[in-house]
């Protein structure tokens, strides 16, 4: 329990730390990316738990919510905000694909480690490549929506 507690706490601290590095001129982009991701992960996270694909044994608000509040409400949206703020606009397709793949791979690896060694997450009918694909798709959808949201104002 204590290990999980410290991991959750440091997840909050690190995510909040990332927020401070977001340049002020891109604050609104960060807010929109954060909120869009939240809308997406909240519902999908609940669906995944409802159908018994993933379990989060140690979590915040354990009696009323069986999904990972920390990850879905805060950490993942923050990462998505960072993803969009520092998105390499104007680089080659290959580079941008690598940018996506880098985010998805690092996050999947962290999740696998957490799955193997802690009680924060347990795969039931799930696998690492599903994590990777869903991460990729959700980043892609949010990025497209961000472009649409700021269309006519920014590149």
């Amino acid at each position: 329990m204590t290990t999980e507690f410290w991991i959750l706490l440091s997840a909050y601290i690190i995510s909040t730390g990332i927020l401070f590095f977001i340049p002020k001129s891109k604050l609104r982009l960060a807010v929109v990316a954060f909120l869009l991701k939240q809308v997406l992960t909240f519902l999908l996270g609940l669906v995944v738990v409802e159908f018994g694909l993933i379990e989060y044994p140690v979590r915040l608000f354990p009696t009323i919510n069986r999904t990972s509040f920390t990850f879905e409400f805060y950490v993942f949206p923050v990462i998505c905000a960072a993803f969009n703020v520092w998105y390499p606009n104007g680089r080659s397709v290959l580079f941008r694909f690598g940018y996506y793949a880098g985010f998805c791979t690092v996050m999947s690896i962290i999740e696998i480690i957490l799955e193997k060694h802690t009680d924060l997450i347990k795969y039931i009918h799930w696998d690492w490549y599903l994590t990777w694909i869903t991460l990729f798709l959700s980043f892609f959808i949010v990025h497209l929506l961000c472009i649409w949201f700021f269309k006519g104002k920014t590149a």
Partner: peptide, 20 residues
């Protein structure tokens, strides 16, 4: 969590007690 209110009938009842 602190029982101010609850939602007995809801969508995705296994995943959350909140009302989606």
């Amino acid at each position: 969590k602190y029982d101010l209110l609850s939602a007995p009938v809801r969508v995705l009842p296994k995943a959350t007690d909140l009302t989606i």
